[in-house]
Design a binder for these strands. Structure first.
Length: 638
RNA sequence: GCCGAUGUAGCUCAGCCGGUAGAGCAACUGAUUCGUAAUCAGUAGGUCACCAGUUCAAAUCUGGUCAUCGGCUCCA
């Protein structure tokens, strides 16, 4: 921390009234403390010392490229954008405009729709405001004064925000730049002239305060960086991310389609996509059997009464599809647990039998809202690598820890990073307070025992129990929920599951719902983007393509093809009458890991010359040697 | 579901103010037999998402439906 320079005009290190120094503040800021805590502290320092310290600290942080500094810069740009919007258009009300991970946004209420041309106008006005180099002036006032100020401007959303502040908040701060004033906690950069690189990205609808019952506002997204180069880099990354969009690659690599004729959110797997899926599923089965799971399988439809018994009918009905068989109502399963419950109930269970781990690659149907469907990521029919574990309360901790380890192992195999979240009881839920507390504690304790860092998501659990979510990140930095572990004390109750304990008495088992990869479809989508379609050898639908130079090399090419296929290598032969360069290009675009060129040299020496998709060349090697290479990669999951 | 945009050949896209469709790539056919990311020539390919309406006339205007895209809400 000692190398951090504080941007005070006189180069001194200021000291706050509570004895901490500027250095302390910036150091703690760097340690990822809640930015707001530090911001509040810096603002307090401003009041205490009359240094315009917060600005300079912010400026310094922007200069050294810290996350917090960038956040401050973007927040300031959002103010400038709000001003530009109100300068350019009449009857626009401002709401909120924070910085976010990739940039910033500001939500406006405006009767008309912002068009792309409008966005250009706004950008132009913003450039003028930046050129004018207005300073950001901070002022504090009582909340009553602030209410008066914003009411006078007709900014009803700001008034609502002020009125909803906690009662103990007596004073609020406002920031003014170039005659435009916004309610804001700060901090901000010293002046608009410091904005070197920004861009407005798109307009979208967003509910006021994120509640779908509220009015829909117009949200303008933008981003900003400390330098033009950084902005250009970011835009390049966006372009690159588009290229690896799984929907595009799914078509280009001929993996799958989501066809309008078939219906929204319904995936059709093509041969290569199905092969990829098969490889993932085989991996799953092997790993589950290794870990003491039993494979089971239930039907797609079960009587509606059973869904009533489980609570799904009351709590999940709007997401379910129903059908009728012989005048009896049936529910198409949105989850796999019911069959597993019936398997458990098929016998009297002893504590000696537990834990029981039922694993099913379970295909489910959920009626997702139209607007959320997205390629393979959000679909209406998908297959979960689902398991339900029934155990004694004493076994719970070890089971949860084993699952968390399994997830970690799986993420390592597929090369993903992930974050962990613990979600607690939601409003619409079933079960006693006591059960919820026990379940939540069990999950939390297991995370602690495994020394895993996690965030808590209050109220985000399933209706039947709390859960641990594992979120991995795709190429666009979007987080996708994949693995989840859900604790359930209520289903065993509803289905009256029991086991005979050591004491000879009947006891209630505990149940865990869990998935490792989540949904195969979504996982494949994430996988496609992660590898940009260039799958590791063990997952490549085609591992090697044999390319002949001329027709006279075809007989040896077919011989090699036969040897590879017999050895279990996924090979294809490209014996078309095309130039070598043309065939190489196609194999390259299909991201095949190895291209085996067969020409005079190879026929003569009875070998192959594998060209790698990264452009490298392995030189002339024997076919056996090549087969061994592929086999080794597969067994190492490379 | 909500806000906004979009839907023309397999893909990427042209097609002004309504007069009834075009390019490049891909595909197919022929020629070419050629060493590591595109050989040349020719041919074929479209109910302009779907359904109504306005009009002498609709890819074009209006309404509805379906679907997709960017978000919001929700979620594996």
């Amino acid at each position: 921390m000692s190398d951090i320079k504080i941007g005070l005009p006189d180069g001194s290190t200021g000291t706050f009234s509570d004895g901490t120094t500027v250095r302390d503040v910036v150091a703690s800021w760097k340690q990822d403390l809640l930015a707001s805590t530090v911001a509040a502290k810096v603002d307090q320092a401003l009041v205490d010392t009359s240094f315009k310290l917060h600005r300079d600290a912010a400026l310094t942080l922007v200069d050294i490229g810290s996350k917090e500094g960038l956040g401050i810069l973007r927040h300031s740009i959002s103010h400038v954008m709000a001003q530009a919007v109100q300068d350019t258009f009449k009857n626009v009300l401002v709401t909120i405009g924070p910085s976010i991970e990739e940039g910033f946004y500001y939500d406006f209420e405006y009767a008309e729709t912002f068009t792309p041309e409008d966005i250009e106008k706004i950008e132009k006005r913003m450039a003028e405001l930046v050129a004018a180099n207005y300073s950001f002036e901070r002022r504090e006032m009582s909340r009553e004064e602030a209410v008066e100020l914003f009411r006078g401007k007709g900014e009803s959303y700001k008034v609502e925000l002020l009125n909803d502040l906690p009662a103990d908040v007596k004073t609020v701060s406002i920031y003014t730049q170039g005659g435009y004033t916004d309610l804001c906690r700060g901090p901000h950069i010293p002046s608009t002239g410091m904005i070197k690189a920004f861009k407005l990205l798109n307009v979208a609808g967003a509910y006021w305060r994120g509640d779908e019952k509220n009015k829909m506002l117009q949200r303008i997204y933008g981003t900003g960086f400390a330098t033009k180069e950084a902005l250009a880099d970011y835009l390049r990354v966006i372009e690159e991310a588009k290229k690896r969009d799984h929907r595009r690659l799914g078509r280009e690599l001929d993996l799958f389609q989501v066809n309008e004729e078939a219906g929204a959110g319904l995936v059709i797997f093509h041969p290569k996509g199905m092969l990829l899926r098969y490889l993932i599923e085989e991996w799953e089965r092997k790993e589950h059997l290794k870990r003491g799971y039993d494979m089971v399988m239930g039907p797609q439809i079960l009587k509606a009464d059973l869904w009533k018994k489980s609570g799904h009918f009351d709590h999940y009905r709007e997401n379910m599809y129903f059908t009728e068989v012989d005048n009896q109502p049936y529910g198409i399963k949105p989850m796999n647990c019911l069959s597993h419950m019936l398997i458990y109930k098929s016998k009297i269970r002893s504590y000696r039998d537990l834990p029981l781990r039922y694993f099913e690659l379970g295909t489910v149907h959920r009626h997702e809202k139209g607007g959320v469907l997205h390629g393979l990521m959000r679909v209406r029919q998908f297959t979960q690598d689902d398991a339900h574990i029934l155990c004694t309360p004493e076994q719970l901790n070890a089971e949860i820890r084993a699952i968390a380890d399994f997830v970690g192992y799986a993420m390592g195999i597929f090369g993903f990073e992930y974050e962990v979240e613990l979600s607690t009881r939601p409003k619409d839920s079933i079960g006693s307070d006591q059960d919820w507390e026990m379940a939540t504690n069990a999950l939390e304790q297991a995370l602690k025992d495994n020394h895993m860092s996690y965030d808590v998501n209050p109220g985000d659990g399933a209706f039947y129990g709390p859960k641990i979510d594992f979120k991995l990140k795709d190429a666009l930095k979007r987080k996708w929920q994949c693995a989840t572990i859900q604790c359930d004390f209520t289903l065993p109750d509803r289905f009256d599951l029991t086991y005979i304990g050591e004491d000879g008495e009947r006891h209630r088992p505990v149940m865990l719902h869990r998935v490792i990869l989540g949904a195969i479809e979504r996982f494949m989508g994430v996988l496609i983007e992660h590898y940009a379609g260039a799958f590791p050898v063990w997952l490549s639908p085609v591992q090697a393509v044999i390319v002949t130079v001329t027709d006279k090399h075809i007989p040896y090419g077919q011989e090699v093809y036969r040897q590879l296929v017999d050895a279990g290598v996924r090979a294809e032969g490209d014996f078309r009458n095309e130039k070598l360069g043309y065939k190489i290009r196609e194999a390259q675009l299909q991201k095949v890991p190895y291209m085996l060129v067969i020409g005079d040299r190879e026929v003569e020496s009875r070998c192959v010359s594998p060209r790698q998709r990264d452009g490298g060349n392995l030189g002339a090697i024997g076919v056996d040697e090549f087969i061994k290479l592929i086999k080794d990669k597969c067994s190492a999951y490379k």
